[in-house]
């Protein structure tokens, strides 16, 4: 099982920022997920707008209710 090209830089980053080492081979293996995740995020670039913020979710829950509910 070969490492993703992202594995070593991400593992280094985690060690520096959080002081956590890869606990096992499965953790290294799981690093390959990030290739796809970064590619997926790349496709979403430009959709976040200046005014977006996390609290919009609670407002949307209320706004999207059934009218008769």
């Amino acid at each position: 099982m070969s490492d993703s090209r992202l594995a070593l830089p991400l593992m280094d980053s985690i060690q520096r920022w959080q002081g956590i080492d890869a606990p096992n081979a499965a953790a290294r293996h799981g690093m390959k997920d990030f290739e796809g995740l970064i590619a997926a995020l790349e496709k979403l670039r430009g959709e976040l707008v200046f005014e977006d913020e996390p609290s919009s979710f609670e407002a949307a829950l209320t706004a999207c209710k059934e009218r008769e509910a």
């Binding site: 799981g30 690093m31 979710f57």
Partner: peptide, 22 residues
């Protein structure tokens, strides 16, 4: 293994994910 990987995601990506939720 799963918990470990979560540490690699940048804060900006996390906040983007929350901000796009609504």
């Amino acid at each position: 293994a799963r918990l470990y990987g979560g540490n690699a995601i940048p804060a900006t990506a996390y906040l983007e994910a929350l901000s796009r939720r609504g």
